[in-house]
């Protein structure tokens, strides 16, 4: 069997002197691994870089086999931001999260589309918000979706400002007052459009940090903590870098 599809390179691990095992994320195949021959050749080495969008072709006799990848590059997103520490950390974090949390060979159209749109937004100012939104989608895809549509206490869809760390549901400002210290701040850019007070308002780096802390909390406790693991290193580096920018 074989398939060819647009993909994002999310991990490359050495196999032997001239070959590596690459992991890509696609919409229909989900996270998929395969062997890449001659990865150090001048034609191949620029292709198999983390975060690059490629046209991947996988060939194997059975779906269970490792199989062999060949690819051509669609856009060298991973290499385009080598000088930008925050953008590079964002790409590395998204790659590492995909590579460590998603199941193998399970279709992930929403996660792939979110990752692709994140890469398209990397050149703009809102990439950190796109990243946090993608992490919330990732949580949902893994079965730990947050309910940010209405207040868990009052049921109202307005004035939502916190998230319960226990239930993952939004809480309104008034209902949150007695428990404020124990709740996670909910940045406005994560709210559904109809619930946000001013959906056009640009969110700042502080809101991005609040978003990273929120999604990071649930990723740590629901996804990685269940396997007694920490958040991926690249994700931790990204959050600490944003925190430093905020003086946190």
């Amino acid at each position: 069997m074989d398939w060819h599809e647009s993909a994002i390179v999310i991990n490359v691990a050495p196999f032997n002197d001239s070959s590596s095992v690459a992991t890509v994320l696609t919409a229909a195949q989900g996270r998929h691994r395969g062997l890449v021959y001659g990865i150090h050749s001048p034609e191949q080495r620029g292709v198999w870089q983390l975060g690059n969008r490629i046209k991947a072709e996988w060939r194997g006799r059975l779906a269970e086999q490792l199989g062999v990848f060949s690819a051509e590059i669609l856009s060298p997103t991973g290499l385009a931001f080598l000088d930008d520490s925050l953008r590079l950390a964002t790409i590395a974090a998204a790659c590492e999260l995909s590579a460590t949390s998603l199941p193998d060979q399970l279709s992930q159209p929403a996660i792939y589309a979110g990752f692709e749109s994140l890469l398209q937004l990397m050149a703009g100012d809102y990439y950190l918000f796109a990243f946090v939104q993608w992490e919330v989608e990732l949580l949902a895809a893994l079965g730990f979706g947050l309910d940010l549509s209405a207040c868990a206490v009052s049921g109202e869809g307005r004035d939502l400002a916190f998230v319960s760390p226990r239930s993952g549901r939004a809480v309104g400002t008034v209902a949150a007052a007695p428990y404020r210290e124990r709740l996670l701040p909910l940045p406005a850019f994560l709210l559904p459009r109809e619930a946000a007070a001013d959906p056009q308002e640009p969110a700042d780096i502080y809101a991005a940090l609040a978003g990273l802390k929120l999604s990071g909390y649930f990723l740590q406790h629901r996804v990685y903590g269940a396997h007694h693991q920490d958040l991926p290193m690249a994700r931790q580096i990204l959050q600490s870098r944003v925190a430093r920018l905020c003086g946190d």
Binding site: Q49, L50, G78, L79, D83, S85, L88, I237
Partner: peptide, 12 residues
Amino acid sequence: SATVEGQSTAHY
């Protein structure tokens, strides 16, 4: 190296 891993290490 001018790779994502190499430059991530450089930024670190």
